[in-house]
Simulated assay, not measured.
Amino acid sequence: MPKLFPLSSPLLQKSIFIALVLLILLTPYLDSATALLAGLVVGLLLGNPFSTHTDKASNILLKAAVVGLGFGIDLHQVAETGLRGIFYTFASLAATMLVGLLLGKLFYTPKRLTHLVSAGTAICGGSAIAAMAPAIKANSQEISVALGIVFVLNAVALFIFPSVGHMLHLTQEQFGIWAAIAIHDTSSVVGAASRYGDEALQIATTLKLTRALWIVPLVLVSGFLFKSEEKKLRIPFFIVLFVLASVLSTFLPAVAAVSPAILVVAKKGLLLSLFLIGANISLSALRSISAGPFWQGLLLWLIVSVTSLLLIYGIG
C-alpha cells in the first residue's frame, strides 16, 4: 500500500497503529472527524501494518455500531414531532436524494459514492453513510471520501448556522427545524442548536431522531436499487437489528436502563470503524478521485440549506 513516509520498522508501525486504537477507545474527547483523520495518517503517511485484516474488520464493526446506535432512538420522542415534522422530514429527504443523484450525474461521480453523499446529506451524516455502505457494497475509498465531505461541511455549519439564524432573527422553532434538516450529523445539529437556545435544541434533536429512522426504508430501497444479479431483495440483517434495538429500548424499561451504556460502546465502535476505514485508504486510491464528489456534496448542501431556510423563513 503506497504511503508518503513509510516506516522501515514493522514493529514501530504496529506500535503506532495499536497506540492510536487505544487512544480512540480510551479517550472521551475524540470525534468522528479525528478518528477518520487518524486512520488516514496511518494509511497515507505511515503505512497500515494490518491491511490484510482491517478491511473486513471495518465492515463488521460498522454494522455492529449501527445496531448499537439503534438503542439511542426513542420512538416516543420521535412521535412527538407530529405531522408537521414528519412532512418536513419526508419532503426534504426525498428532494435531497433526488437533487443529489442529479448532481452526481452532472459531476460524473460514481453511483455508489453519489448515493453515500446524498444519503449523508439527506438523513444524518456519518451514521447514514455507515448504515448505507454495507447495503450497497461501497468500498473503503468511497466510504472515506463521503465521510470526509460530510465532516468538512459539518464543521462549517456548526459555526455559521447560529450566526445566520441570529442575523435573520429566526425563532427557536424555525432554527431548530432548519438545523435538523440542513446540518448532517446529529452531533453538529446538537452543537449548533444548543448555541441558539434550549427550545431550538429540543426541536432540532427530536426532528433529527425522526430523520434517523428513515435510514431503515432508505437502506432497503437502496439495497434493491444496487442489487446485482439476485432475484430477491435481501433485507440487511443489521438493519433489522437496528429497528429491533430501537423498539426494545423504547418499550422495555430494563433495556432502556442499559441503553445509554450500549450507546457509548456503539459510538466507540463507530469511531474505531472510521479509523480502520481511513487506514485502508492508499495514496494511489486518492489520486484516482476527482474534485467532482466534493463539489457535488458542497453544492447539494448549499441547495438544501438555502431552500429549507427560505421555506421555513417564509412559512414562519
Rank of each mutant, 00 (worst) to 15 (best):
L4W: 11
R211G: 04
L168A: 10
P253D: 04
K3P: 09
I183A: 00
G43H: 01
A180T: 00
L220E: 04
A157M: 15
F50M: 03
I60M: 11
K3L: 11
L12G: 00
S15M: 13
L153V: 02
S32D: 13
I315H: 13
T210S: 12
G278K: 05
V152E: 05
E173Q: 12
H169A: 14
L168S: 07
G165K: 02
I16R: 12
T114H: 01
A266N: 02
K268W: 01
S15H: 07
S282D: 06
E230Y: 14
G292T: 13
G197R: 03
G120W: 03
A135P: 06
L75I: 08
K56G: 13
G191R: 03
I262Q: 04
L75K: 00
L213Y: 12
K63P: 01
L61I: 00
S249Q: 06
I73V: 10
E230V: 06
F251E: 01
T52R: 15
H184Q: 05
S308G: 10
V150I: 09
H76Q: 12
A122C: 02
L102I: 13
E230K: 15
S9Y: 06
F275W: 02
D31P: 01
T109G: 00
I262F: 09
L98D: 07
I281C: 03
Q296S: 02
V221C: 13
V41Y: 05
Y313F: 10
P217Y: 04
